[in-house]
Design a protein around this nucleic acid. Sequence first.
DNA 1: TGGAGTTGTTTTGCATCGCTAATTAGCCTA
DNA 2: TAGGCTAATTAGCGATGCAAAACAACTCCA
Lengths: 141, 141
Amino acid sequence: MQNNSTTDLAHRLRPVIARLARRMRQEAGGDLTPTQTAALATISCHGPLTPSELAARERIQRPTATRVLALLEERALIERTADPADRRSSLVSATAAGEALLEAVRERKDLYLARQLETLSDEDLAALDRAAEVLERVLAA
Amino acid sequence: MQNNSTTDLAHRLRPVIARLARRMRQEAGGDLTPTQTAALATISCHGPLTPSELAARERIQRPTATRVLALLEERALIERTADPADRRSSLVSATAAGEALLEAVRERKDLYLARQLETLSDEDLAALDRAAEVLERVLAA
DNA sequence: TGGAGTTGTTTTGCATCGCTAATTAGCCTA
DNA sequence: TAGGCTAATTAGCGATGCAAAACAACTCCA
């Protein structure tokens, strides 16, 4: 065993995160599927993207990106413009409707988590705040 | 606004948890799908279950449970015995092979997270340990 | 006891998601 | 300009999620 503390912590932390994420997904409501929500959020956040760039960021295959984009475009949540640098490609961005829907979904998900947090002490909340900061750093790496 | 601190924290914590969970799922490897892994883990952990009990615990519909169980049974990861209390139903439990596979999947997932944690300071690790305890309490409620 | 209503499981049908393989279109270098 | 490479798409497969409906077994009441 190279480092007991990290493996033990991982063993304890992983199921908690997995279950909590699952709960939040279930509370999301049926407007968008998880994949669509994630794709729309990435598009909204990281400016105009080509389908390939979206696929890379989402870690999905390009054919999957094509299909998700088609669904989002059908609902006018995204729009495409020509890519000036490559006529094979296009640049995808979120429409105003897409941004609005994304915001609504976010609020609903935050609300579920916020309700769960309301029962906690200030000390517990501070611990979670600190953990959020640490995990943000982990994810950025 | 009823309570700024919890909603703000939720707003910050939710995306972190969602992204981390997604990463861990992607690192899982292809032995079992996420649904199958979750179902098998629930069966392993919560003793012999009827299909309906599994569906309730997993928060999936009963037809979905039927299908997942069929797939797991095909691979001999679970087995069924007659339910003495109700001849319409059956009791599902994990086989030795199922337990072993589950353990292997868990170790792989833990390993991914453990690697990410190795870069952190002892202080950061302590913060995550504390957060794990708090989140376990949240989930139990 | 008999029949009605309820409950557990499964089947069926539909939409989405993830993948790979193959196709088409445009880019770029030798 | 010809060939190889890259971007996007299409087609096809298995898995997941849902709802509706079929079927079997249970339960309760008259």
